[in-house]
Nucleic acid binder design. Structure first.
Lengths: 127, 127
DNA sequence: AGCCATAGACTACACATGTAATCAAAAAAA
DNA sequence: TTTTTTTGATTACATGTGTAGTCTATGGCT
């Protein structure tokens, strides 16, 4: 298959706002990032360019500006990253990771309910 | 608090075998890594040195050799990494991450049981 | 006592990354 | 039409990272 493009931390932030809503011009991306990050516009444009070069973003010209959009789905990316994260740090076992997370962070009742729902779904499909 | 040292991927592999068993000489580390990685001994020694400089490893001299050992606990590291991973990719919500993982990987009956146990424990502490 | 193997220290070097500044072309303004 | 602005393209540059090679001192062998 196509090899997973390495997306750096800074690049991820840019991709993330494009996942939220796209296509978008560089100025829109810059504006949205302004809330969370304190990046110079030139920095954001560099990151956009690098993501295009990596094949993570596509764009189409609209007059002089580009309209950028993601070429990979957020779900696909997060699934792959999660799998590799869990296998690296937890030998591929999900429960210890959840345990460590629970131990470090407060789990809400809703978190618990969602986990229960996942388990229930699994049990309905496997028995 | 002390700021989290950035541990690169390659460095992590070295740290990982030291977490498994320590203290260990560089040669022991090199030998253990030989199974999984195809790294030159010099490479491993460079990584050991960098980890020492970053304050991740300590050592004590044994004649001419060093006995290396981790200065941070695996649990502490994995918890922090998990928290930051979940907050970056899943807005801090653990259930969607587990859902994505389950969707990508086969969950075993044991995984499910472990998750159930975690939930049960949470419910005993919170009600 | 002298030489050699070896351990860690120091150096190397290309590519990635964070963080921009400058350049060139075209659109917008004057 | 000339000037200014703005956009993407190109260049910059320090630091991190992967992946070693060379230097130097010392413990061990002869």
């Amino acid at each position: 298959m196509s090899d997973k493009p390495e997306i750096s931390n800074a690049e991820f932030e840019v991709l993330d706002v494009l996942w939220d809503d796209h296509p978008a011009t560089s100025n829109e991306v810059i504006a949205r990032l302004n809330d969370k990050k304190d990046w110079h516009e030139k920095t954001v444009k560099t990151l956009l360019g690098r993501l295009v070069k990596k094949g993570v973003l596509g764009f189409e010209k609209q007059q002089r500006q580009y309209l950028y959009y993601p070429l990979i789905a957020r779900e696909d990316y997060t699934k792959k990253e999660t799998t590799s994260f869990v296998s690296r740090l937890f030998k591929g076992k999900i429960a210890p990771m959840v345990a460590g997370f629970a131990n470090q962070n407060a789990l809400s009742k809703q978190d618990i309910n969602e986990l229960k729902a996942l388990i229930k779904e699994w049990e309905e499909n496997n028995d």
